[in-house]
């Protein structure tokens, strides 16, 4: 319990500092105000339980039982909550379990996923204009260096299929499928001729 309460306390402080620095947070909190949302991620040892207030979010413990909506999923599926069509697909294939109003779940996820902070202004308020500017520039540079997963996927695909010839390319795969279809047809013809 103390570990959970301590981590909740730290997470609450961090999130509320971020929400205070985001001028649009009040608008995102409005539709979920007074409600409690529970997020159970497969990778975490206990659920995240959030109660939404006028200008902040309170992190409650797993004993809190006045829940309005609950989502059980994993980190990779979590981002799909922002896209209604993907939510439906995740519900159908069982990677997402939802109790309560789906619209509430979407609004609740947007409180955090929709964070949009002007880092330069946030740092400047706490550290002064010049350090704030430098820190914000540094963060922007770090963000630009972040690897793009789609580019990595393309590079990996080309290396495996074109350079190393470990897997088939798209054209080779299509030719293989055509050959397979033709072979199936020949077998059927032979079977028909034989009988």
């Amino acid at each position: 319990m103390p570990a959970q309460a301590l981590l909740n306390s730290i997470a609450e402080r961090v999130l509320n500092t971020a929400l205070a620095a985001d001028p649009d947070s009040a608008g995102r909190l409005k539709p979920v105000r007074g409600k409690a949302f529970r997020l159970q991620l497969a990778e975490l040892p206990w659920p995240l339980t959030l109660t939404f207030c006028e200008d902040r979010v309170l992190f409650m413990g797993s004993d809190y039982d006045a829940i309005d909506g609950e989502v059980q999923t994993s980190f990779p599926v979590l981002r799909t909550l922002t896209d209604a069509s993907k939510v439906t697909a995740a519900l159908q294939n069982g990677t997402l379990s939802l109790q309560g109003d789906p619209i509430f779940a979407q609004h609740a996820s947007q409180v955090i996923l929709g964070l949009n902070i002007d880092w330069e202004e946030a740092f400047a308020e706490r550290l002064g204009d010049v350090p704030g500017f430098w820190l914000a520039q540094g963060m922007a540079k770090l963000t630009s260096l972040k690897p793009d997963p789609s580019q990595w996927q393309q590079w990996l695909g080309e290396t495996l299929s074109e350079e190393k010839k470990i897997t088939l390319g798209q054209v080779e795969y299509a030719i293989f499928c055509d050959d397979l279809t033709a072979l199936e047809q020949r077998i059927r013809n032979l079977e028909a001729g034989g009988s």
Binding site: N8, R33, G61, D63, Y64
Partner: peptide, 19 residues
């Protein structure tokens, strides 16, 4: 500072809600 964590647990067990 642990009294804050004890009070957090009290809040969780209260089940208090809006209104």
């Amino acid at each position: 500072g642990i009294h804050r964590l004890w009070k957090r647990q009290t809040l969780d067990a209260s089940g208090v809600r809006k209104g």
